[in-house]
Design a protein around this nucleic acid. Structure first.
Lengths: 370, 370
DNA sequence: TACTTTTAAGTAAACGTTTAACTTTTCTAT
DNA sequence: ATAGAAAAGTTAAACGTTTACTTAAAAGTA
């Protein structure tokens, strides 16, 4: 692995010593020399191509094991021009959703014998949660892409919330992209996201089915893609069930717990019997308010959050919520990418919506049985 | 990036067309040809070695930018025999501590212009939390190591809890290892872990300073390294403050919330006024018990956990706890590894203990001011 | 001016693979 | 036995770099 002088099997050298040296890292040449065959033959065995007899194959294979041979992937990739490697660019690895998405990508890669390399942009650490800094962010994305392309990745999966993905457009046609958990403005870049609308619809369905006609919404920020799609889903469900849509039951929040706390009395005042908070944090705020005011969530009020953060399962009462299909997002994103790579020219889907799972816990009157 | 035919700058070809082709990925040869200089010269510029005039340097540099040149790292690494890349093997990426450790490694790597590749073993997903399966786990570790060594990493950082790290020993002398968040039996492998003992000592100091002489302990499993070291720390603190150590104030748990719940009444019964739970989950269990029994944590009972999980900050009352230096563990592990690589032969520390931070919240009577 | 030193550049071999093209051996069918 | 085909094996050139060595020109020095 470190720089070493070229090694020749000098017959005067004790064979065991020779092994000992080789233990570090044998090359295909040494392997060939050892078996007494050309390197081309060894290469064929290693890539199980035909044109080599069973016996030689066995010989090579066992020699490979004995000499602890490991192919030098740099050399292989250099020669073949393909690395069978995906680049993953994550906006922030330490954000709750990222590891599961990467996990999904990893499983897909493994099943199709690909590798991946990870690039962590650290947006949250660098910029906090502030939006803006677009040009700096773009620079980071671009630099990371350069790095990955230098390593000859066959494609790049971008995991993020903001669509800095647009920076990708400035790259050559030759680079394959897929967005996971976000999407680019460019429809030619496939994106895998979860279905906000359908999730919200099903949440509303659930609450309605439990007899709640007055459903309060602690929504997210107004300009958010998520907020708007979920609102749409809610309206759809209400319409389907012929329940009037009442804008007064909507409170726009900023995704923080504190805001959940402050929205709760407003909605309660307006007579809602259920509250759908668009993330678990705000739901926790509502829960706090109820706990402080002797409103028993799960009995006096049905409450459901969104995201399935760790807190939702450990709060008391345990919070019903919507689980994001993080693993699946990663898995399908990778799957699409690998299809792009392997089936060149075949059209890929532009945007894939994955279903969320509703997790019922105590806060909506668990167990639900209807 | 894909296989392409060799490109020659044919002077009859319109130069702009030539650029357009090159945009995809120029080689050093094409760059040299474009500037009208040898590839050796270009290489020197790119690696800012001397022996090239300012003018040519500028020329090459601007051509590189114009042709969108990116060095092929596979070729470079092949030639140089070093990849300036660390391998990170993580037992499970989705476990709460892993991403921050990787973040730390990443920052260190970046500052010293190294790269890393990540290998996720998925132990938790594959095996659940059960111990055992040692031979399967070792196989996974070994396979991952093979993969990484194939990619010519300069060293491997292992992130895990169990010391499967011992499997590493079967590897050649030539591979550099560092353990993060765990340690190997082999003292020659540097390990970076947090200081359980000192953390527990400081927790005890804190509780004593707040006037609690009867401190209940919800300990972890008996065989655990963490449990025992923390117990030692507690005893040290008590000894220093001449407070008797009472074994009846210790309840051994299994790290689960439920067990915290069950230990609480036992300890309370014995008259403790403070409880130190050895993880946040068990502390939550204690908190549950208190909430159900109208014991006001933070006033009637001081409670502190360990790990600084997300739950601790969002529970009500917010839980005081011990924050693990995850980022620092990653950062120092990487730093040691890079020292090993760059300062060959210089002895590296065998085991580094990093301090935890105590986070005081409401459950110990926040704010503390003494 | 003629020598040496310094600077700037070029040449070519190597890194460890893969693979197209070729040669040799073995097998099959006559 | 022999031609032809199939199978097994070899040769050598590439992939895109780096780098030790060489050469040529420029700059110092006596």
């Amino acid at each position: 692995m470190h720089n070493r002088p070229a090694r020749q099997w000098n017959p005067t050298l004790d064979i065991n010593v020779f092994y000992a040296i080789l233990i570090t890292m044998a090359t295909i040449r040494e392997l060939a020399q050892y078996v007494g065959v050309s390197i081309a033959t060894v290469s064929k065995v290693l890539n199980n191509q035909n044109g080599v007899s069973k016996e030689t194959e066995a010989l090579v294979l066992q020699a490979a094991k004995k000499l602890n041979y490991r192919p030098n992937l740099n050399a292989r990739h250099l020669k073949t021009g393909t690395s069978k490697t995906l680049g993953i660019i994550a906006e922030d690895l330490t954000v709750f959703n990222t590891p599961d998405i990467i996990d999904g990508i990893g499983v897909c890669c493994e099943s199709r014998s690909f590798h991946y390399i990870l690039g962590n942009l650290r947006f949250d650490k660098r910029f906090g949660h502030e939006t803006g800094n677009a040009e700096q962010k773009n620079r980071l994305v671009l630099d990371m892409m350069d790095q990955m392309l230098s390593k000859q990745v066959d494609g790049i999966i971008y995991i993020g919330c903001h669509s800095h993905a647009l920076a990708m457009l400035s790259r050559s046609e030759d680079t394959r992209f897929v967005c996971a958990y976000c999407y680019s403005e460019d429809p030619s870049i496939p994106a895998v996201i979860y279905d906000d609308r359908q999730a919200a619809r099903r949440v509303t369905d659930l609450l309605l089915s439990k007899g709640h006609a007055k459903i309060g919404i602690v929504a997210g920020t107004k300009d958010s893609f998520h907020t708007n799609n979920r609102l749409l889903g809610i309206q759809e469900s209400l319409y389907e069930h012929s329940v009037p849509y009442n804008p007064h039951f909507i409170c726009h929040g900023d995704w923080t717990r504190d805001l959940g706390y402050r929205c709760a009395p407003v909605l309660l005042e307006r007579g809602v019997t259920a509250i759908f908070a668009m993330n678990d944090l705000m739901a926790m705020g509502v829960l706090d308010y109820c706990n402080h005011n002797h409103i028993e969530v799960g009995r006096d009020l049905a409450l459901i959050g969104f995201d399935n953060r760790e807190i939702s399962s450990v709060s008391r009462p345990a919070l019903s919520t919507v689980a994001l299909p993080l693993f699946e997002i990663g898995h399908t994103a990778a799957s699409i990418m690998l299809d792009m790579i392997e089936k060149e020219g075949v059209a890929q889907p532009s945007r894939i919506l994955l279903d969320c799972a509703i997790i019922e816990r105590e806060s909506t009157g668990f167990p639900s049985a209807n």
